[in-house]
């Protein structure tokens, strides 16, 4: 641990921490990730991604957990986590729909698709459907411009969508 980080990490430890809600498996995977780098801190974004995969989003507990695990000041974990647009702070649905609204998709109807999707799901951007099944957000270019308009549901791409075909796509996700 470098001297620069020692002070703050030590201060964090002084406060009583609630028992971690994070699994041992997650701790292990984060520890494993740190081994790939010359400095543990480099595992921060991988760790945040892992937690988001597990919880669906990040929260205060996640930040404290990672800060402690990687000996990074909490303020810095917040600063870094909040910088990246795909790390989120709001609960998400079981499936997260990211609709690309950048130029190639926009030229081919992304806005109508979003309009239709909002109507169909009955929620606005960042909200979760009442059944907890979906949440949706706009996203910048996902590199599927050859299938514009394109979306990302969890880790799957769906392209060349129309208001009709997107409904069929949604049915694949329960």
């Amino acid at each position: 641990m470098s001297a620069q980080h020692a002070g703050r990490a030590g201060q964090t430890a002084e406060r009583p921490e609630r028992k971690s809600v994070f699994s041992n498996d997650l701790v292990e995977r984060i520890e494993k990730a740190t081994l790939r780098y010359p400095d543990r801190k480099a595992a921060l974004i991988p760790a945040l991604n892992m937690i988001q995969r597990e919880l669906g989003y990040l929260n205060r507990d996640a930040v404290r957990f990672v800060a402690k695990q990687l000996s990074i000041p909490e303020s810095e974990v917040y600063g870094t986590a909040s910088f990246y647009s795909l790390l989120g702070w709001q609960p998400t649905g079981r499936h997260v729909i990211h609709v690309c609204h950048n130029l190639s998709c926009s030229l081919l109807g992304a806005e109508s698709l979003i309009e239709h999707l909002e109507k169909k799901l009955g929620v606005g951007e960042g909200e979760v459907t009442p059944d907890g099944r979906f949440s949706y957000a706009r996203i910048e270019c996902i590199g599927r411009c050859d299938g514009a308009p394109a979306i990302l549901i969890d880790d799957d791409y769906h392209g060349n969508l129309t208001p009709e075909s997107i409904e069929q796509v949604l049915e694949q996700y329960t």
Binding site: A3, S75, Y78, G79, S82
Partner: peptide, 8 residues
């Protein structure tokens, strides 16, 4: 080196 501040 207290590192309380960050840019969010």
């Amino acid at each position: 080196d207290h590192r309380e501040l960050a840019i969010l």
